[in-house]
Design a protein around this nucleic acid. Structure first.
Lengths: 207, 207, 207, 207
DNA sequence: GATGAATGAGGCTTCATTCAT
DNA sequence: AATGAATGAAGCCTCATTCAT
């Protein structure tokens, strides 16, 4: 319980000013985490960039980990909301297009501040499996698996769970690596096309 | 150069005893890095696990970074030797089998102590682009690209460099994630089959 | 500038408590430097003697050098204020008395915590030419040279700069050595008399 | 006894080779002490510069202090031999010339590797009053005092011990400072002339 | 005698966190 | 609520010295 609590926010801000303070701190934290990494980031730096005192920071976040936890929660909410918006069940007309849309959605989701995602997820595993993260990951997998199971049939028997597991990691890694190593490609149609090819080729039965 | 190269080993061991010491330190470092991560690892822990004094450690490695650099070098030598052994140019008979072999080789290479690979590569980028790493990555890409360019033809025009970039990240990530999250799958034929499907499907022109 | 200036104080204390802390740390540092020398002094010793934690020390002084730099600045301010107070230009009546007063002033200035002066000046040269020190030394030389040039005439041509250079070192050394080796003499009229004789004899043309 | 012994050489070298080794170590030590200061000097540096192993160094000198002690002894032997050679009692003809010779001798003595003298004497006081040093200093003072007492008469009563004390410090400091701050002046007739003026003026009764 | 590998106490410094104001 | 001064555990690293070979 004590461990779990370290990562929990200290108090929910009630007043408008307090809410603004929390926002500004989180923004600052995101910025510093991205540019300095988790260990390279000091709470003082975050406070300074946020323009608040270190004491104020600790009033809202009882530890450095709590910053990670909160950011992780937010980030995943954003990722999840993207997925939920786009993956509402609906009648399928064009299978190919369907799968392609799904992938585009995943790429879009992983493209939300990917450097921050990287830093945070790295910590997520160290902090101990944060419930938020696990939940989200599970939901993403479920969503994807749902779409696929409703729409695909394989010639040979395949473990759909494994397929989804692999797809997600492959896509995520491709997106993140590209952000870091070839940022100029992000957003080009060519890049999206290749990612789609990766996934569609994988899902489509081979001759 | 002397001041800057914190990552270079401090001295070449001359006596047999010293060589053994270096080995034992590196083994210890690998172990602790894997279990505690780079920042979570202290030089004292490494020395203790190696059964040597902290002074001895610093006699051979002038900094924590130097441990990473040395391990990185060794790891890559191993990875590269796997690749070189298997990817010797030779007459192609069965294209499908050929590509599948290539992928198996990559999986094998990324399966060499993957948790350590993860920790080290993460640091590699922070330490500054270590030559060893860049070289290796370049050579892997070149090798793969070579095999592919000799054996594949695409219906639509594709940027082969981008294709290889994506394949490598996708494969690597899939292997690493599996080691961490589903270790029981590593080595199963099913897993290898899926990875092959991922790559072959990607490379094969879609109908 | 930020990286290089290890000798600059880290932050200006705002609250009254902080100011008091800075004072107490500087006093402690002066004491320990005098009794143990620069290298013999550890920052921990200083913090302990000041009755603050080591962290507090580093909050205000980013390094051991910064302690030296600050003490040097203070010491020289004191020395300079003594000189400025006494060496205000004024009409000369008794030349002999005039020079004697000048010397008395120098002795008084070098007599301000001379053991500390020794330790600090030794470091000043190692730290790299601190501006404060150079400025002060230059001003002392200028002041002395000014008084002398307005009041002395030599039979043979002499390099007044060299004369001043020698006088200052000779006086300073005599004062400092006496503090260390014959402290009982400091302040006796006899001692002052001899120093005056040293300087006046030097300045007065020989027959 | 244990403290005293730290500074004593470990063994007298008997063989020629051993003697050469000791010499080469001492030369190296002198060099490194001068360029890096006492604390800045590591025994390993000394060994390396001497071209011997650290083990060999410790075979002849049981500690870093022992190096200082030995160098101090040698240096003072040299200083003392200069003084002894020149200050042999002899009939006085020209008083003025006599005193001037004495001063020249002192300057010459203090000019023998003055930077090393500075480093060593600094340590001498920290190591604890080394007998060698005290003896030498005493002998120098005695010698000088002897010459002066036989040849000078003052109008007013003066403490000759104090006079000598002051002269020696004044001269030494002037020489050493000049080496550090105005090396180009060392050896010029002008510089010697000023030092002589300093001393002669001091000794000669004022009108 | 020589070598250099090994030791470990101890130094400097950072930074997450607490708490008095 | 906010501030920022104070804390101190803990990390990295150096270097004088010992000792097995």
């Amino acid at each position: 319980m004590s461990t779990r609590n370290r990562a929990a926010p200290r108090k929910r801000p009630r007043q408008a000013r307090a809410k603004a303070t929390v926002e500004v701190i989180l923004e600052a934290a995101a910025h510093v985490f991205v540019s300095s990494g988790y260990e390279g980031t000091t709470t003082k730096q975050v406070a300074e960039r946020a323009g608040v005192s270190i004491g104020t920071l600790y009033q809202y976040f009882p530890s450095k980990e709590a910053l990670v936890a909160m950011l992780l929660e937010r980030l995943h909410q954003r990722v999840l909301s993207i997925l939920s918006d786009k993956l509402v069940p609906h009648p399928i007309t064009d299978l190919d297009q369907e799968v392609r849309d799904l992938m585009r959605t995943l790429v879009e989701a992983y493209g939300v501040n990917p450097r921050l995602q990287r830093v945070l997820l790295e910590q997520a595993s160290r902090i101990g499996p944060l419930q938020v993260v696990q939940e989200i990951e599970a939901r993403v997998e479920t969503l994807v698996q749902g779409v696929l199971s409703r729409n695909l049939e394989f010639e040979r028997p395949r473990d759909l769970g494994l397929v989804v597991f692999i797809i997600i990691r492959a896509l995520r890694s491709a997106v993140w690596s590209t952000v870091v190593e070839r940022p100029e490609l992000i957003g080009t149609p060519e890049f999206v096309e290749e990612l789609s090819a990766l996934v569609l080729g994988y899902l489509r039965p081979r001759r």
